[in-house]
Amino acid sequence: MDFFIDHYNYWVVIFLMMVGLYTVISRGNLIKKIIGLNIFQVSVFFLYISVGTVEGGAAPILTDGIELYSNPLPHVLILTAIVVGVAMTALALALVVRIKESYGTIEEDEIHELDHSL
């Protein structure tokens, strides 16, 4: 049971990663691919925050009478990653809009056909 509790977080993180990866590989719709990428990204956030959690620790804000804090460093890294991730999502979605303007579709296989029927 202890072994299960110790590793449950990591296993769910891996499951989420694989769902995201599978969405990216197997689905042809570009918006759905981007959402799959986002799921993968959030699962990496969980991996970092899980590593930084300390059993019985408090949130890393200095308070009198509290000795044990969670690790603040992963929190900082993930804070940065979230903001950069949204910037990247915006860029990817802008590319999707441009693809729609040029090809008239956002389905990968239709774009592929249009490229080869020229």
Binding site: I49, T53, G57, A59, P74, L79, I82
Partner: peptide, 10 residues
């Protein structure tokens, strides 16, 4: 998981 700052941002 004790990360309120990350939760706000997310």
């Amino acid at each position: 998981m004790d990360a309120p700052d990350v939760a706000f941002t997310e």
